[in-house]
Nucleic acid binder design. Structure first.
Lengths: 141, 141
DNA sequence: CGCCGGCACTTGCATTTCGCAAGCGCTGCT
DNA sequence: AGCAGCGCTTGCGAAATGCAAGTGCCGGCG
């Protein structure tokens, strides 16, 4: 937890998320976990933005320490590791959706499908529930 | 705009906001503009988190370049400068409110008043409207 | 008219973080 | 027994950050 660390800067809620997510990479890992069903180290490494392996290892460790992500051995494959969001991590979804809406509006080159933005505007709770459901599916399978 | 820069990493909406806000400081400036009615360089400098002056100058310049903030001379005091959010910047409010809600829930030492969180849960559009109104007030006065 | 204080930056330099490439250790498969 | 895949570590040059001091402009006051 940020506030347990020595370098806590304030108790402002904006600052609180910045202590964990205030860099160019951490939120991309959350995105991959939440929207893209990724669970393995190599999958994060393969994302478009090309995170380097040392940074990835560092960020996963921080996310785990901050209670956003948990790590477990892959039962079906001993040398693999499964990363998944905790409940706290899943609760980032509303933030992620607001971010998507904002970028959808202000980024002329966005890759967000129009249909997704429409659904976001029309019935956000339902969309959120669908995303969490499909995440559960992924984690079961 | 991030995508006009050479170092654009992808067209993902999450990445889009990270290109502008992906560091430990930028969003604190937005917070000060949006929630605390700050407009002057020296006011940002005085915030709890103690941003250093060279970083502040750099971030304000980037925010202006990205169309989130605009800069104008203070008519009442020639050596002062007024910074204000553009419409695009004001539209960050929903993101900021979601962040506040998340931190309010997960940060045991948060300084967010309980009443604020309640209002956030109960009638968010109204709260958002109030915040924007009081921002208009500040900018008029 | 000249000086002084406030304000918005700039500059220089030490420290930290990042980015890239190579390598390591363990596991399962053949 | 050997090899390939996977998660992660290490080393090093480059870039970003943090800190402190300095610069230039404006307004106010004597």
């Amino acid at each position: 937890m940020p506030h347990n660390s020595a370098r806590c800067r304030s108790n402002c809620p904006i600052n609180f998320v910045l202590e964990t997510f205030g860099d160019k990479w951490t939120l991309l890992i959350v995105r991959d976990l939440l929207f893209h069903g990724k669970r393995h180290y190599g999958e994060f490494l393969a994302s478009d933005e090309q995170i380097s392996t040392n940074i990835l290892a560092d960020r996963l460790q921080r996310l785990e320490r901050d209670g956003v992500v948990e790590k477990q051995a892959d039962p079906s494959h001993g040398s693999k590791v499964i990363y998944r969001l905790t409940q706290k991590g899943r609760e980032l979804l509303p933030i992620m959706l607001e971010i998507t809406a904002w970028s959808g509006k202000h980024d002329s080159r966005t890759n967000v499908p129009k249909a997704f933005l429409k659904q976001l505007a029309k019935d956000r709770p339902r969309l959120a529930a669908q995303i969490l459901d499909s995440l559960d599916e992924t984690e079961k399978g």
